[in-house]
């Protein structure tokens, strides 16, 4: 990671910060804005990932799916969901230059949640992000954000991306 220019590291950290702040504020349009038109988002258990099993909890494999994720959260499931407040804690662990202004970045994450009515705080999940990030013309965006959960058994249903 020492070979990566400081401004690139800064940009990648900024993108990640925009992402987790968007989720903690449940601003799904700002979440979507973190991705470019080639962007994909996956939420998958480490059990599936490490065994080569492709099933995810969420598998948004094109930009239209990302847009539909916003629709699902904002317009479709809002009525029945027991809402919770999240706090995403992340730590950048690696950046690799892939060339063509693309970088592979890894973050560890832990997500705390505080559910309405219960109002005690627990851990929703812990794991790692495996990202492919485009840093180009002063803009930074996800080509891929894959959240791999160590927490193979979710503690509850999860209506929002992690």
């Amino acid at each position: 990671m020492s070979e990566i220019e400081a401004n690139v590291i800064f940009s990648i950290e900024n993108l990640n910060r925009d992402y987790i702040c968007a989720l903690d504020k449940l601003d799904m349009n700002k979440w979507l804005a973190c991705f470019n038109k080639q962007g994909t988002y996956t939420l998958i258990s480490n059990e599936n990932e490490s065994n080569g099993l492709p099933i995810g909890f969420m598998l948004d494999d094109c930009y239209e799916r990302l847009q539909d994720r916003v629709t699902q959260v904002v317009d479709i499931q809002e009525d029945s969901t027991e809402h919770y407040q999240t706090r995403h804690m992340t730590q950048l662990t690696n950046i690799t230059d892939l060339g063509d202004n693309k970088y592979k970045a890894d973050f560890n994450f832990t997500v705390f949640y505080t559910q309405d009515l219960i109002e005690q705080t627990s851990i929703l999940g812990a794991g790692r992000y495996e990202d492919i990030i485009l840093v180009e013309n002063g803009k930074v965006s996800f080509i891929q954000r894959k959240a791999v959960l160590d927490t193979n058994v979710l503690p509850r249903y999860v209506p929002y991306p992690i």
């Binding site: 499931q77 029945s80 249903y157």
Partner: peptide, 23 residues
């Protein structure tokens, strides 16, 4: 795979409401 990963289960578009009812 993409249908199963997005429509059913604890995050699924057409089934997550069931999970909320269980709770």
């Amino acid at each position: 795979i993409r249908q199963s990963s997005n429509l059913l289960g604890p995050c699924g578009l057409i089934s997550m409401e069931d999970a909320s009812i269980f709770s």
